[in-house]
Simulated scan of single mutants.
Amino acid sequence: MSDLDRLKRFLSGASVDGAVFGLRSDYRAMLVAVEGIIPGSSDAMSGALVETAQAAAREMLRNRPVEDVEHVAAWREAYRAFGAKPQRTRNSLEALLRRAATESGLPRVNRLTDVYNAISVLHQLPLGGEDLSRYDAAPRLIRATGSEPFSTVANGETVIDYPDPGEVVWCDDGGVTCRRWNWRQTRRTQLTDETSTALFILDALAPLSDAALTAAADDLVGHLARLGPDVQSVRRLIAAPGHPAGAITTEGD
């Protein structure tokens, strides 16, 4: 089986539970699996993209608060729907926009993380990146029972936490990979300077259109293609029943 076939099989096993669509029937998840990445620290390409994203965020927030950004407001409502307080636990888009607009700006982590953070800001949607090789089976988005383990860090130490019952979480067979839809990712699958195969999850709610979601995925894949001569990717859109989604497409052959 080829590397691309393995990525396709991985994405074909991904799912979003009906209870999540019961909260937001307009939710869509674009999953992008990428292999062939040459790991590296932040460089001129990723730095320039981060600078562009920061400038865009500062311009967008010049005359309005971040909570008035349309997709941020939609995610705040989604958080309230499962009992989270968006003022205390901000969706990843809001957190990045707030940081990008400050003098300190976005963090420089490594070129892989820099790219996906910048794409999130530029396209105004939550976007998470994880090391696909550290997954224990395909990802699924569910409403938690509260018994799913979540590996995180507190006071510099690795600890196991648990989501609230009913909380929306991404998980695999090893436990929670991201809490509160797109709030905080687990330490277990986090991207590192050695990551060569990655999974990216782009989250969309109305008013963000399918075309805008696809454009964000296109931009992400285009920049990731610069991270190695043999980079290849597959993607899959997951949406509520009745939506024309589900096809797995391949790029980089």
Rank of each mutant, 00 (worst) to 15 (best):
S25L: 05
E130Y: 08
R226L: 15
E77A: 13
D193G: 11
I160A: 04
T192A: 09
G252F: 00
P86Y: 12
S120N: 12
D68R: 06
A48S: 14
L4K: 08
D26S: 09
G166K: 02
R62E: 15
R28D: 08
G175R: 06
D253Q: 13
V50S: 15
R180Q: 15
E59M: 11
T52M: 08
A78D: 06
Y79Q: 06
L127R: 00
Q185V: 13
T158V: 15
T250H: 11
R62I: 03
E148D: 10
A55Q: 07
W75I: 10
E70P: 08
R226T: 15
T158S: 14
G146V: 01
R184T: 03
R98M: 14
A216P: 06
T177D: 04
V109L: 06
S151H: 12
P149W: 00
H223I: 09
A95F: 03
A33C: 03
S25V: 07
P165L: 04
F21E: 07
H123C: 05
L125S: 03
N155T: 10
T250A: 12
D114T: 12
H243K: 12
R184V: 07
Y162N: 10
T197R: 15
F10T: 02
P229I: 12
E59D: 14
R98S: 05
T158A: 14
R179D: 01
G156Q: 04
D219E: 11
G228W: 11
A216N: 00
A247N: 10
Q124C: 00
L220G: 04
D203I: 03
D164P: 05
T214D: 15
D203C: 13
I37M: 06
G22N: 12
Q190L: 08
A44T: 13
E148W: 03
D136F: 09
D68F: 03
L205K: 04
L220A: 01
D218W: 05
P244A: 05
L127I: 10
E157D: 13
M30Y: 02
G105Q: 12
A204I: 04
T195Y: 04
A204S: 02
L122M: 12
E77N: 12
S41P: 13
E194M: 00
L61Q: 10
D210R: 09
Q185H: 13
R88P: 03
L96S: 13
A14E: 00
S133M: 13
L205E: 06
Q185F: 11
E103R: 07
R76A: 06
R111F: 05
F200P: 01
F82E: 03
R226I: 08
G18T: 14
I201F: 07
A204N: 01
L11E: 01
P139T: 01
M1I: 11
E251W: 09
E148M: 09
I119P: 06
E35Y: 11
L132C: 08
R236W: 05
D173A: 14
T113R: 10
A44C: 00
D203H: 15
G228N: 07
V20P: 00
A144S: 15
T152G: 09
V20W: 01
A239E: 13
D131Y: 01
I160W: 04
I238C: 04
I142V: 13
G222C: 08
H71T: 15
R28K: 09
R6Q: 10
G242C: 04
V159R: 08
S233W: 05
L125A: 05
D210K: 02
L224E: 03
W183V: 07
A84F: 00
N110Q: 06
A81W: 01
A212M: 01
E35M: 10
M1F: 13
